[in-house]
Write a protein that binds this DNA or RNA. Sequence first.
DNA 1: ATGTTC
Length: 477
Amino acid sequence: MIEGVVRKGEYEWELPVGFIPGMHVPGRFFLSDELTKTLEEGALQQLAHVATMPGIIHNSLAMPDIHWGYGFPIGGVAAFEYETGVISPGGVGFDINCGVRLLTTPLKPSDLAQKKEILDNLFDAVPVGVGARSSLRLSEKQLEKMMTDGARFAVAEGYGNSDDITHCEEQGRMKEADPAHVSRKARSRGVPQSGTLGAGNHFLEIQVVEEIYDEEAARTFGVEQGQVCMMVHCGSRGLGHQVCTDHLQVLEHAVSKYHIQLPDKQLACAPLTSPEGKAYFGGMAAAANYAWANRQIITHQIRSVLTRMSGIGYDDIRLVYDVAHNVAKIEEHEIDGKTRKVCVHRKGATRAFGPKCPDVPADYTHVGQPVIIPGSMGSSSYLLKGTDVAMNRTFGSTCHGAGRVLSRSQAKKKIQGKNIRETLGRAGIMVKAPHDGAIAEEAPDAYKSSSEVVSVVHNLGLSRLVARLEPLGVIKG
DNA sequence: ATGTTC
């Protein structure tokens, strides 16, 4: 382990205050011995950097999928006191509300004789790849509604049902969204991209529930062994990226205006109560809502294909839940016995609210919030549940996925996409992508093991395993 | 992640 890090338990490590100058709180991160082998020193430095920011409380936290990111580490969680703290785009990431949703179907794998045709139809119905454009032509007014109403906009337009809304984090809509802080350029990127999947690690998968770990929670979430499911992983596309870019520029100036000392320019931020901080938050929430609506529109396309191809009903395809992996939220948390209003930044981290917490859907509240962890291409995905331990220790947060071990360029150099496609094909997993390079970048070997990451948060109790899902067919952007 | 270095 890197010098200066203190071991606190089987899966826990601390960066003491003083690891670098100016830290207000300790850093704390969660790794198994196996995962410490892939820890990047740069990511740990970033965890320490975050601990120097104004108003941070409790700990600068990182989940076991920690890796190097823009300013803040990916896998990072940081909460700032509302009155004295800051908000930072680096703590959210460029893909605002990159997230994932899980749908159940009444189908069994044996009902998928036409799997290739289903995948072909899904590939035609959901535009994928960098710069993908959809056939939907949103008006300016519709885009505005998409940004203020999120998943509700999509459902109001006929792309879903009311259960879909109650089964989204935030009911698919942050009320603080303010489209006035979304630039003309961001809007022009958003208009043609509604209902598109995007690229990189974004995917649409046909999966099967392979193992149940927690019968009661699985039953509550409507998930059964042997059931065919659909998983959607995507975000706010070019619109969210542009919101991040635009506000970073403003906030770089705000840093000197508000006399904030930072160890890295990429931590650009502003006080939560400042006009600049509020503007970013309003724009970020608008982009988050765009992402929820985007996943909702894609859900409708999936339902349309499956009802046409397999004869099941539209409402037989149920949304289990939809979680955000990249977002900042105003929440109340109890710290040292006192309830504090804080802005929780989760960047490559999942909210994991426990039983009886606000915003957990009524039909799930006795169990806790569903947590959805996608695997890398061709590997297991997991369904977990939120816990009281997460509420007490990590502002109700857990990991988000596997985390890279090879950069995109390293992966493309080392790995042949065609070979991956053939190997997965032999295992019965069909892959469709715009080109083989997209497959190489996202090859399983480019990522840490998602099962190792998930076992750490399960063992710590930051969330608890409910079910494991395995891919049957993959559409990659 | 991203009209993949406006």
